[in-house]
Design a binder for these strands. Structure first.
Length: 536
DNA sequence: AAAAAAT
């Protein structure tokens, strides 16, 4: 266990760290901070959630705190793949640059350029940006990049997926060769290796092994349904959400269009749900996320824009409306719950069409999630029924399911304990999940006797066949700091662009609540707490 | 099969 005080950070920076309540550095922080402070390049192979953001923010703050920015001459750049992730980095700066005179600006698309340009004109130390807006502003002559001393690239492999590599390369070339580079990627595909070979100088490679399985704080379930009919899937989803004691949950869909449809459907059925994906207005994205963080919104229906990196502590449920096509995404999605030492539940709706994707997921997580059977839904009837959408129809789907789920919908006082906990009797290794031969009929058969018992106990619309079998991995968890120890938002440097994007009091309060949970040890899934290998 | 990002 390494304390932050051993890493060579200045007293001012250490004070800011102490104010967050954390004392122990994560493996990636422990390795990267001294190297970065020495001015050397870092190649960090690490996932989100390893404490990576602080691993580059702290040395960045420390190294920059002595100088002063000049107009249109930023001294550092942090590049992130999505607007929301860039915003999170900005929040991290707000915490750690507290005792300094450093300024930063968030340069992302979807918001007006006015404030961004004003900040650049005034002179700002750090640009926290998505590549598109940064280049746009550069091409408009709003800043020079030849004064850049440090460049950070976060989630490089995701940038590759998103086609940003040419932009990143362009930005590298606009900065002076003598700059220091801190480069982070979860994986090292050839294209990324090429980039690091071209732009990093004798980097210290720091590696935290990538997740092969999911955290012990997440209980996973598979919910098989016999059809991939969207209406049937929505019915299954509502039954699931309705029967769970959902404090707050994220529903992931594979497509943006599906996100909209599912959010609308949930709303029409009385659930407190809102969509988030990349086609929505940035103001709406920001507001929805803020509402979800503050607890004002219970159910976030999301594309994979929200799968990675987003740090929302204390999400009680993740529902995979679709199975991710990429197994990695599944791990990231369910990683939104079971954070900060809390328990989380993750459900995945699986249709016969999802077999291939499911196989990939199961192979990656190296376990068979418990199978949960939704009873009392006549899927055949839904499929063969009137071809209307579920809105406003008086169809069977609705009468069959809605009335029963209503009492436990997210709008109902969610006082009852989770059904799963109540019903799940330990049912050791013979769980049939991995057999592909007709697992459904077998599950149902086994579920029936319990069904009777459950429905007597509570009027649940579904029957559960569930076992607690998640692999336990030992995780030391730092305690969440007391409310009193968390820094007050008012103490921080004013965030240059926050006023524009979320100036209301509620959002500010929400930000304060987020303090102290981001970026450090209490939030690290067990599977990420593996030894770190350093090669000079 | 998709999503993400400058407009």
């Amino acid at each position: 266990m390494t304390e932050f005080s051993q890493l060579g950070l200045s007293p001012t920076t250490l004070k800011a760290v102490a104010d967050t309540g954390y004392t122990t550095a994560t493996p990636i922080q422990e390795q990267a901070i001294p190297v970065a402070l020495a001015g050397r390049d870092v190649l960090g192979i690490a996932q989100t959630g390893t404490g990576k953001t602080a691993a580059f923010t702290l040395p960045l703050v420390d190294r920059l705190s002595t100088g002063r920015a000049r107009a249109r001459m930023p001294r550092a750049i942090v590049l992130a793949p999505t607007r929301e992730l860039a915003d999170q980095v900005a929040e991290s700066f707000a915490k750690y640059a507290k005792g300094t005179k450093l300024t930063w600006v968030l340069l992302i698309g979807g918001v007006s350029m006015g404030d961004q340009v004003a900040a650049l004109n005034k002179g700002v130390d750090v640009l926290i940006a998505t590549p598109g807006r940064l280049l746009d502003l550069f091409e408009r002559g709003k800043m020079m990049l030849n004064g850049v001393e440090i460049m950070v690239v976060d989630e490089a492999d995701r940038m590759l997926d998103m086609g940003f590599i040419p932009d990143i390369e362009k930005i590298f070339k606009l900065t002076p060769p003598r700059r220091q580079t801190l480069f982070f990627s979860a994986t090292m595909p050839p294209e990324i290796t090429r980039l690091t070979a071209a732009f990093l100088k004798d980097p210290t490679r720091i590696e935290a092994s990538r997740p092969a399985m999911t955290a012990d704080t997440i209980t996973q379930y598979v919910v098989r349904i016999p059809t991939s009919d969207p209406k049937a899937k929505r019915t299954a989803l509502r039954a699931l959400v309705g029967r769970e004691d959902v404090r707050n949950g994220i529903v992931f869909c594979n497509r943006k269009s599906e996100v909209d449809i599912v959010a609308k459907s949930l709303k029409q059925h009385g659930f407190d749900a809102a969509p988030i994906h990349g086609d929505l207005d940035q103001s709406q994205r920001t507001k929805t996320l803020a509402d979800f963080r503050s607890g004002a919104l219970k159910i976030l229906v999301a594309s994979d824009v929200a799968a990675r990196g987003l740090d929302i502590p204390d999400v009680s449920h993740v529902f995979n409306y679709d199975v991710s096509h990429h197994a990695d995404d599944y791990v990231h999605r369910i990683g939104r719950t079971g954070r900060a030492g809390k328990l989380g539940q993750a459900f995945m709706i699986v249709t016969p069409a999802d077999d291939k994707s499911l196989d990939k997921v199961l192979k990656l997580i190296k376990m068979d999630p418990q199978e949960l059977v939704l009873d009392g839904i006549d899927f055949a009837a839904i499929k063969d029924g009137p071809a209307r959408d579920d809105k406003r129809s008086g169809g069977r789907e609705r009468t069959g399911e809605r009335s029963r789920s209503r009492s436990r919908s997210s709008n109902a006082p969610a006082a009852e304990p989770s059904e799963v906990a109540a019903v799940a009797a330990p049912q050791p290794a013979q769980a049939p999940a991995q057999e592909t031969e007709a697992p459904r009929s077998r599950s149902r058969r086994k579920a029936r006797p319990e069904a009777a018992a459950v429905e007597v106990a509570a009027p649940a619309p579904v029957v559960v066949e569930a076992v607690e079998t998640v692999e336990a991995v030992e995780t030391p968890r730092a305690p969440r700091p007391d409310r009193a120890e968390r820094p007050d938002r008012a103490d921080r440097e004013p965030h240059l662009l926050q006023s524009d994007r979320r100036g209301d009091r509620k959002a500010a309060k929400d930000d304060t609540q987020r303090q102290g949970v981001r970026g450090f040890g209490d939030d690290i899934p067990a599977f990420l707490r593996r030894p770190v290998v350093v090669r000079a």
